[in-house]
Design a protein around this nucleic acid. Sequence first.
RNA 1: GGAGAAGUACCCAAGUGGCUCAAGGGGCUCCCCUGCUAAGGGAGUAGUACGUGAGAAACGUAGCGAGGGUUCAAAUCCCUCCUUCUCCGCCA
Length: 425
Amino acid sequence: MIDLQLIRKDSESVSAALAKKGAIVDFRELLEWDKERRSLIQKVEENKAKRNKVSAEIPLYKKQGKDTAAIFEEMRALGDEIASSDKKIAELTEKMDDFLSRLPNIPDEDVVAGEKENNEVIRVVGKKPEFDFAPKNHVDLCTDLGLVDYERGVKLSGGGYWIYRNMGARLEWALINYFISEHLKDGYEFILPPHQLSYNCGFGAGQFPKFEDEVYWLEGEERKKGHFMLPTAETALVNMYAGEIIDGAKLPMKFFAYTPCYRKEAGSYRSEERGMIRGHQFNKVEMVIYSAQENSMAAFEELVGKASALVEKLGLHFRVSKLAAGDCSASMARTYDIEVWIPSMGIYKEVSSVSNANDYQARRNGTRYKDPKTGKNLFVHTLNGSGLATSRLIPAIVEQFQNADGSVRVPEVLVPYVGTDILRK
RNA sequence: GGAGAAGUACCCAAGUGGCUCAAGGGGCUCCCCUGCUAAGGGAGUAGUACGUGAGAAACGUAGCGAGGGUUCAAAUCCCUCCUUCUCCGCCA
């Protein structure tokens, strides 16, 4: 949610900033509603003050035996007026909230306008592996090594689902365990949230109303009162303190959670997205930081550093891209993607997306902190980053670390978790 | 899923339509007395949101789990919902 005050003060700058994301917004109507609403509030509050005053006098009149019929008549009319003003205010408020809730976040100043093509690669780590044999793609590798059973996954649940088997399951779980231990080392609190969340969480994270149709809703419930399967742990983590005022001395608060992510999108049947690149359910460890406003850039760098370090320690070739405004998700002011090289596809695929929402999510769900310096209540800055999405790492690992004989080398840091340093038939 | 009970401020808690625009206590903050400790006396303590102020102050409005309704007037009466506790049912 964008601060209404900011729009009142300087709607043109806000428009210009949103245009970087490709959102063309005209604030004139909103500002009209705002003006009308405030004048109604003034009027209705005057009337309410009058009603309060008269109400306090009524018991006195009654004691004195005065006739109150005329006063009641007058007060009834006043009450009707108050009710109708209140109704108009509520309607305006709803319209304004709806308008505001559909606006994307304002991108940071240094984030460039435009879409994907304006993304900037800011770091490349390692080299593209060279093979002196014909490398296989990850679908073949995983199938041949018995790591993943795509066919029976489809049998169980249809397209977009797969089964991890045997060493595949151990490799997947090894990644999760490895990430967990690294985050614990860094002092992050381990969270296992519910996977079924109520509507407010989707709204608070900024994913609704826009992406309501991209998540799985539980049957038989009305949407706004119902539950959906979380599309990322961020949706849960970012709402834990909704409506609360956090003691500023406790910031930054750092969390991570492991959950599967449930998404309808998968859709894409393009052949290059075969296998585990995009599924309806995938595993991810997610990091979230609640930060004081002035420290959120540092927190952002920390998350980028942590996510990169994980990929680097796995020994994978990857790059870090700073996304253009239009490629950041709607809620985010800045996003860096960590993209891992998939040899068979000849492209880099995202394994982590690190973002700073600034106060956008906190405004939507009312997460504030008391600033120890000023004593004022401020909206927290929320940041999130995958640390990491395991389902895309496995394709990268098996493809980048494959050998001529079809076996796959296990990244050293995972050996203790997997129990072997090589995966063979 | 069913039945019963409850939800009031940092905590406990009084309060079944109006001098209660929420009593009292605990805790906390400050002051006084005493001063090693212990004990005593007094004052303050509703956070927050919104509105009018450049802003602070100040004022107003809302607020007794949430949302509606009845009424001149609602913590109080009515309806719906949420949460907690107790019991029962279900438990792949």
